[in-house]
Simulated scan of single mutants.
Amino acid sequence: MNPIQDSLMSRLKQETTAEHDRMEILMRESKALDSKERYAQFTLSQYYFQKDVEHLYLDPHVSQLIPDLDVRGRSEAALLDLADLGLKPKHEGNTTNAVSFPQSLGWIYVSEGSTLGAAFLYKEVQARFGFNADFAARNLAAYPEGRAIVWKRFKQTLDDANFNELEQEQIIEGAMQGFKRFGDLLADLKQLT
């Protein structure tokens, strides 16, 4: 494999480690799994973040690079979950209008990576509340092909794209923006409803 391609994935992982750790702390502090009400607020944060990310799918550069976008979006699942939980989003806007390619890939990296952590959350909401892939926890459920397969395919897509140094920097910057956005949502769960 090309060392530059390898370095993109290792750089993404390495340079976003602190943000990933911060998300874990924010998740604990949000107490998202302490009650159905808190989980509903968390699901609303998921919905808003997914709407932000899915807006980026409209870019022809993104859809050309990642041909399986149709299996990746989770906002519709989150919206159905919110209906189950008796919540309705306040707004339908997004915060990614100014995000361009290839920064958008960093946002998608954050979203796709979160599907791996969602496995733990899915088990927890099943055990605590009885929620599942048919009621209130669709947004946490695995892809039909499985989480790992879809994640590996995404990583391989980025590896095969052979991004130059500047593009890699922009992707990492986009990932940092995505982590910041989701972190802001987690920190403000009570304000979302």
Score class of each variant (00 low, 15 high):
P67D: 12
R153F: 13
Q50A: 14
G106N: 00
P60G: 08
F120A: 08
P102M: 06
E124H: 00
G86R: 04
Y122I: 04
A77V: 02
L140M: 02
V53W: 03
K31R: 15
S114D: 01
D70G: 11
A133W: 03
L80Y: 07
I66C: 04
F154C: 09
A119Q: 14
Q103W: 01
W107H: 10
Q126F: 09
A40R: 02
P102D: 10
K51H: 12
G146T: 03
E37T: 08
L105E: 05
L69N: 11
A40L: 02
D84T: 01
M23I: 14
N139I: 05
E24H: 04
D70V: 13
W107G: 00
S35M: 04
L121N: 04
S104F: 03
R38G: 03
Q41I: 06
S111N: 07
L140P: 06
E37F: 07
W151Q: 01
E92Y: 13
G113S: 08
S111F: 09
K123H: 08
R138C: 01
E37V: 11
V110P: 07
K31T: 10
G106K: 05
F101V: 05
W151I: 06
H55Y: 12
F131A: 00
G113R: 03
S45L: 11
N139A: 12
R28H: 14
A77R: 04
D34W: 01
A136Q: 02
A133L: 09
S114F: 00
Y143D: 03
R74A: 03
S30C: 08
A136Y: 09
